[in-house]
Computed example of a mutant assay.
Amino acid sequence: MQLSDIVEDPAALLAAWPVEPIQWQHAPDHFDGLLTMGEVNEWVDSECLPLRNLELVEDGRLMERHEYQGNKGMPDPGRVRAHLAAGQTVSIRRLETAKPSVSRLARGIQELTGYDVQINAYVTPGGRQGFRYHYDPYATLILQVHGSKVWHVHPPVVENPTLEHGDFQQRGFTPEEQEHLAVTPPAASYVLDRGTAFWLPRGFIHAPIAEPGETSVHLTIAIRERTRHWVAARLATEILNLALTDPALRSVVPPVEMAAGPADVVGRMRAYLVGALLQLDPAEMAELTRRAAVRPA
């Protein structure tokens, strides 16, 4: 399966990155080649999935791994099954490292976009919720592979969040934002049935809840976009790597100068960086940046 099997017009999506949620409906068994409920049950009830690929969510928080670790550093199947029976969520992490069909999908999306891709599965008993309201610093493409889930969505409170700036894990919500979410109905709610694909741009606040009746399983394709800041960082890294090859730039700044305020060396290094940036070959740097973008993480 590739991106063209999921979204309606992949060329349009790649040309104009969507900034609003979108849904596409497919046949109920459309995503069975990626993951099925039967496979989930096999993983839950066996010791073949490494501990690093499994996370348990309890009342909106990630549990410590020692709480469900079994023999030989593997998850304890009994504890994981009991966790689900208690209505809590199980997350199978980095599924692209554990299943070939998912790996091919992740690699295909990365080659098309130049964006890093990670794919996780979330298993939530009917009528229950895993994570409370939060937002992600990347776009997500959600594939509902079993059961149904309702996604309550609010618009972003941080424009273009990234892992380095405005990430929910670092920032959380302000008291005013928490109060707003507590008393304000969602701006939109999306029902994902089996076979539904759902595009959620980065920054959108969401809180998915499994529909009553049966267990919900969905795949989250996390698409970590390359930003202009990311490109600037590649250029800066190239300049600094070249600078390390110059013995003069590896020489010591005298302590007396550093303690007094190294205005002279700051001025000279500023001039060096500006000159080095202007000397970079744009075509060569464009190719180096492209290769860095499609390189597997």
Rank of each mutant, 00 (worst) to 15 (best):
Q69H: 06
N71V: 02
K72R: 14
P75T: 08
P75R: 02
R79F: 10
R79H: 13
V80K: 04
R81I: 14
A82T: 12
H83G: 09
A86H: 14
A86W: 10
G87Y: 10
Q88G: 06
T89L: 11
I92A: 11
I92P: 02
R93N: 11
L95H: 05
E96K: 10
K99M: 08
K99T: 02
V102E: 05
V102D: 03
V102K: 11
S103K: 04
S103I: 05
R107K: 01
I109C: 04
T113Q: 03
Q118N: 11
I119D: 15
N120C: 13
A121L: 08
A121Q: 03
Y122R: 10
V123L: 05
T124D: 11
Q129S: 05
Q129P: 00
F131K: 02
F131I: 00
R132M: 01
R132V: 00
R132L: 06
Y135W: 01
Y135I: 02
P137W: 06
Y138V: 01
A139Q: 12
L141F: 02
L141N: 07
Q144T: 13
Q144P: 14
V145G: 02
H146G: 07
S148W: 11
S148K: 12
S148Y: 14
K149N: 04
K149Y: 13
K149C: 12
H152Y: 12
H152P: 07
V153D: 02
H154M: 05
P155S: 05
V157L: 06
V157F: 08
V158G: 03
V158Y: 06
N160S: 03
N160E: 12
P161Q: 13
P161W: 13
T162W: 13
T162Q: 04
R171P: 03
